[in-house]
Computed example of a mutant assay.
Amino acid sequence: MAEIQLRNVGKRWGSFVGVENFDLTIADKEFLVLLGPSGCGKTTTMRMIAGLEDVTEGEILIDGTTVNDLEPKDRDVAMVFQSYALYPNMNVYENIRFPLKVRGIDPATHDAKVRRASAMVELDEFLHRKPAELSGGQRQRVALARAIVREPNVFLMDEPLSNLDAKLRVSTRAQIKNLSHELAVTTIYVTHDQIEAMTLADRVVVMKGGVVQQVGSPTEIYDRPANAFVASFIGSPAMNLMKGTVSAGTFIAEHVEITGLNAPDGPLTLGFRAEDASLAGEAQGQINAPIYTLELLGDATMVSVRVGEALVSVKADKTFRAAIGDTVSIRIPSEICHLFNAEDGARLGG
């Protein structure tokens, strides 16, 4: 069992706040993703759990034991880094075996443990090779196997896929997903890639400026973002956000008029997902504007228009054809709209 508790954990360097009041319990065997842009505090949070950064305030508990003062080696966690951190003079077999030697594990068990870990990440045919002879994806799998062989209580993964190309990211992501199911070990995974977060996580923690913005399942965060920042960060494409004014239940902005809203009069930000809207007949929709750009995605065509300073997108059928500058009409039912406070971005109306 490896339940992790972060009790009002904070990290400061002088007057700079890296992480503020992080309070969360991570369940045994849970796959938790820390998601946010660069500099939001997600890696710092992971490094505090690992013991690589000191905690300025608060407590970190693993299995009910406070670990603030424990050395990294005594916390029974295994880390997988973005940079692989392999030993270039050792072959794959010895790289995977190294944690067993360092921890004084019975040498008679090493071969079986190494081969079990390498089989899990499909490295058996590469055990004799040096890291320089491997591709980026293979090196990352060596790093994964080296963490697996430890049989730790907790896996910590810091952007492990960011150095891989798009195709390798997809296949390695699937491998990590399968491994997490097979190993059933508490895992904390740091990424700025919301697709990784949505596909891997049991729960996602969205962070900004060292502060937790929302915690929830991928579905909860996608369907009911807590604020405009979360809405803009989750989804591919991100949620469309438009600034405008509501009067008597009608939202008005440049090229836009949406009626039937349950919202107070005054300025607010309105959001909707590209896949929830659709193209309408001429002048029959709630947005009527010239096409700014068209993107053919294969399964759909992404049509974008400008609304004030915002670029607003809608998914059209893959057969849709038009030219930039042609006027389109976009249908946005009021029930698909998300409303946010114009000043602080907080969600309105539950």
Rank of each mutant, 00 (worst) to 15 (best):
V9G: 03
E30I: 01
L270F: 07
A280S: 10
A174H: 11
D158M: 05
P131M: 11
I291G: 09
E122D: 14
V80S: 10
N227T: 10
E220D: 13
G325Q: 07
D28Q: 06
E159D: 01
A117V: 00
H338P: 03
E159I: 03
L32R: 02
R150M: 06
E59S: 01
E3T: 07
Q194M: 00
A346R: 14
K208I: 02
V215T: 12
E254I: 06
A147F: 00
R146P: 09
E309C: 02
F229Q: 04
L6Q: 04
T269K: 15
Q213A: 14
A231E: 00
V55S: 10
T43E: 02
V312A: 08
I60R: 14
P290I: 03
K11H: 06
N21F: 08
T56N: 08
V149R: 08
H338Y: 14
A228H: 12
D76L: 07
E295A: 10
I26G: 04
R331W: 02
E343H: 14
L294G: 15
G58Q: 07
N95T: 00
E275Y: 05
E20Q: 15
A85H: 03
G36E: 05
R7P: 05
S232D: 02
L61G: 07
D202Q: 07
A322C: 14
A289D: 09
S334R: 04
T191C: 09
L200C: 02
A283Y: 15
I195K: 04
T45D: 00
A316Y: 06
E30N: 06
K42C: 10
N91F: 06
H110F: 04
M1Y: 03
Y292V: 06
T293E: 12
E159R: 05
G104S: 08
P237A: 01
N91G: 05
P107T: 02
L294Q: 12
A238R: 15
F126A: 14
L123W: 01
L279P: 13
T293S: 15
T56S: 13
V114R: 14
H110E: 10
V185P: 08
R273T: 07
W13F: 12
D124C: 13
G64V: 00
E94S: 04
Y222R: 02
Q82V: 13
D76Q: 12
F229P: 09
D165L: 13
T293M: 10
V92S: 01
G325Y: 09
L261T: 00
S329F: 03
I49N: 11
D326V: 02
M79V: 08
T109S: 06
M239N: 05
P333V: 15
